[in-house]
């Protein structure tokens, strides 16, 4: 790589989509994490509080996934056309998992007899959706077979030890997001339990980050170049140190029973990983295969949507920020049962 790429409309779109994906990962990450942790909190009352802590926001959180996918389709249709068949099984599994857990929010309150069924749907759906997202990430990182303008591999290509590892990594990470979210939003026994659950999840998450980072440069010569040659190395060199520092602060904040710092530190961990992924991928959109310029829709298409997006996305962000501000503070365990 020599110098920086030109800052043009495809680049703007790459950042818009990267932003949508990151927003999705951290936002739906913590509410999927709640689903992952549900089984460790068998008490009815705890589960009510846990679900209430994400009930008003999960729907909006999930819409970032649609925005990311829709943005990819609109701005980089070739990439959308190659990626989706390449990760067919994980995407379908993720969608079905999201359907199950999504309706569980609604149905769990509507039935006494069927409560157990929908709680299991919530747990199972959250796990399948999370693990599938990890598989999809790994499948893209390890490289997909492209022939002409289409995916050229089989429908099980995504299943490798590496993708299994990324699946576990994302699951650990989302569970940690969920646990630290609970620390932030709850009190009493529930919060104590969340502190206890969070600690081993820190080790699992950081361990998974280390393993994925060690494996990634060996997947493609391209990654090796990006990580260890200029200018990538300027970004990759400080990342391990930053990850270690963040993990230490995170562990200490859990020990000192800090309220919001564990969640913020977990978000920082995710951000660091995202930067690492960005260094590995950008300016490609199908990693190591297709660049954002090769995949870009005509400028007229990209501008047509960018006009609407640049008006609506800031409004959506402002409203989302406002909603989170309104819901700041602890969940009242008695709310909703008057």
């Amino acid at each position: 790589m020599s110098g920086l790429p030109p800052f043009d409309i495809p680049t703007i779109w790459a950042f818009v989509i990267a932003f949508a994906v990151f927003a999705y990962v951290v936002l739906d990450g913590f509410d999927l994490g709640i689903g992952l942790l549900f089984q460790f909190f068998p008490e009815r009352r705890d589960r009510d509080v846990m679900m209430n802590s994400v009930a008003p926001v999960w729907d909006g959180n999930e819409t970032w996934l649609v925005l990311g996918g829709g943005g990819l389709f609109a701005a980089f249709p070739l990439a959308y056309a190659i990626i989706m068949p390449a990760i067919y099984a994980p995407v379908i599994a993720m969608l079905l998992g999201l359907v199950l857990r999504g309706v569980a929010f609604e149905f769990r309150w509507r039935t006494e007899r069927g409560r157990g069924l929908w709680e299991n749907a919530f747990i199972g759906g959250s796990f399948v959706a999370t693990f599938s997202q990890g598989l999809a990430l790994g499948a893209l990182l390890q490289g997909v077979v492209v022939s002409g303008r289409a995916y050229g591999g089989g429908w099980w290509d995504w299943a490798t030890p590496f993708t299994l590892l990324t699946g576990c990594a994302v699951t650990a990470g989302y569970a940690l997001l969920g646990a630290t979210w609970l620390v932030l939003k709850t009190t009493g026994d529930l919060q104590n339990h969340a502190y206890r659950v969070a600690r081993p999840l820190v080790f699992a998450t950081v361990g998974a980050i280390v393993l994925v980072s060690l494996a990634t440069p060996f997947l493609e010569a391209d990654y090796w170049r990006r990580w260890f040659e200029w200018p990538g190395v300027a970004l990759t060199a400080p990342v391990p140190i930053a990850v270690a520092a963040t993990a230490i602060v995170l562990l200490r904040s859990l020990e000192s029973r800090h309220d919001w710092r564990p969640f913020v530190m977990t978000l920082s961990l995710f951000f660091l990983c995202f930067v690492g992924l960005g260094v590995s991928i950008f300016p490609n959109v199908v990693p190591s295969r297709v660049s954002i310029w090769a995949a870009a829709a005509p400028e007229s298409s990209q501008i047509f949507v960018l006009v609407g997006a640049s008006v609506l996305i800031p409004i959506i962000l402002a409203y989302t920020a406002h909603a989170y501000w309104v819901f700041r503070g602890k969940i009242d365990p008695d709310a909703g049962y008057h």
Partner: peptide, 15 residues
């Protein structure tokens, strides 16, 4: 309690 509500103030969420 609040369920599928979009992002919005719900009564179950009073801080």
């Amino acid at each position: 309690p609040t369920r599928t509500a979009g992002i919005a103030p719900g009564p179950a969420q009073s801080p």
